[in-house]
Amino acid sequence: MTTPAPLTAGWSRPGRDLSYTPEDFQRIARFMYDATGIRLTEANERMVYARLAGRVHDLGLDGFSTYVDRATSSLAGEERDRLISSLTTNTTHFYRESYHFDYLAGQIIPDFITRARAGERIRIWSAGCSTGEEAYSIAICLLQHFPEAPQHDLKILATDIDRAVLARAVTALYPPGSLRGVPKALIDSCFDPVPGGDLRTPRPQIKAMVTFRPLNLIGHWPFSGRFDAIFCRNVAIYMDGPTQERIWTGFHQVLRPGGHLFIGHSERLSPSLKGRFTMVGNTIHRRNGDPARGR
């Protein structure tokens, strides 16, 4: 997330006659924290203006105060979702932090293969999946090393609070920038070209492995079973300490003993979780406990 200089009271973008005060920003910041757990500071004031001013103008409103009233009301619905979408960060690409996928392929998938062939259920969660590159990267990695995966009870759940990026993930049309660093041979074998341009889309068997759903990480998690691996990378970095601890603790509760948690390169688990996880790689943590006893 960008960190520009703070605004002065009543600052307004040149060429726009829109009222925007520190009080307007504080109302937006409180809403985002309560709704998503994302913490905005005064350093984000210009970013908030830049991302929302066009919408305020398009609605024919004279200032942010009226817009905040409308977007955060109990009847806002779509406008509330639009506000959240505008202020969440969705930077990603295929095989981002590639060492995580190296570990998945070398250290985790062999166990998945053994367990899946024995009839066990395997579940992976891509939490904060953005436009889908992470979830599809997991699916590609699984198919590369376990081609028969679709024949077993092995599924990937991908969730995000931003419904706009989820729609793009389901559509799954990716420009060359999303595939930077992916070997050409892998692109050719796992992606179909989209007629009329340079976009690519994952092949049907890859898409079929992933289910996309909206989910707020600070809300209720409607899960009936545990996960074998969770990827939540560069999401908690935008949250304060107590919110991060709440999310890490939640992941511990829904991971099976021996399951793995992958977090972002700048993120760290809360000290209170010491003893519940063992670090086994670069920002890769294994949940402690006895897998055989399930606790």
Rank of each mutant, 00 (worst) to 15 (best):
M1T: 03
P4G: 06
A5W: 08
P6S: 12
G10W: 11
S19M: 12
S19T: 14
E23T: 15
D24N: 10
D24M: 05
D24W: 00
R30A: 13
R30W: 09
M32N: 05
R39N: 09
E42L: 12
N44S: 04
E45N: 09
E45G: 07
R46D: 06
M47I: 11
M47Y: 07
M47G: 06
L52S: 12
A53Y: 01
L59P: 01
D62H: 09
G63C: 05
F64S: 03
S65D: 05
V68N: 01
R70D: 09
T72D: 05
S74F: 15
S74A: 15
A76W: 06
A76V: 13
I84W: 01
L87M: 07
N90T: 09
N90W: 10
F94D: 01
R96S: 13
R96T: 10
E97S: 08
S98R: 13
S98L: 13
Y99H: 15
L104Q: 00
L104E: 01
A105G: 04
I109F: 02
F112M: 15
T114C: 11
T114G: 13
R117P: 00
R117C: 03
R121K: 14
G128N: 00
G128F: 00
S130R: 02
S130F: 03
T131P: 01
G132T: 08
A135F: 04
S137I: 05
A139D: 08
Q144V: 13
A149G: 06
Q151L: 12
Q151D: 07
H152F: 15
L154V: 06
V165I: 11
L166T: 12
L166Q: 09
T171I: 10
T171A: 14
T171Y: 06
G177P: 06
G177F: 14
G181V: 10
I187Q: 12
C190M: 15
D192E: 12
D192T: 14
P193L: 03
P195L: 15
G196H: 09
G197E: 14
R203S: 11
I206F: 08
K207A: 10
M209V: 05
L215F: 15
N216L: 08
G219S: 14
G219H: 07
H220Q: 08
W221A: 08
P222H: 06
R226K: 12
I230P: 02
F231R: 00
F231A: 05
V235F: 03
A236Y: 00
Y238N: 02
M239S: 05
G241S: 14
T243K: 04
E245F: 09
E245P: 04
V254R: 05
P257R: 05
P257C: 12
P257A: 07
I263W: 00
I263M: 01
I263T: 04
G264E: 06
S266N: 06
E267I: 05
E267P: 04
P271W: 07
L273D: 03
L273I: 07
K274P: 03
G275V: 08
F277E: 02
V280H: 12
I284G: 02
D290W: 13
R293M: 13
G294S: 09
R295I: 15
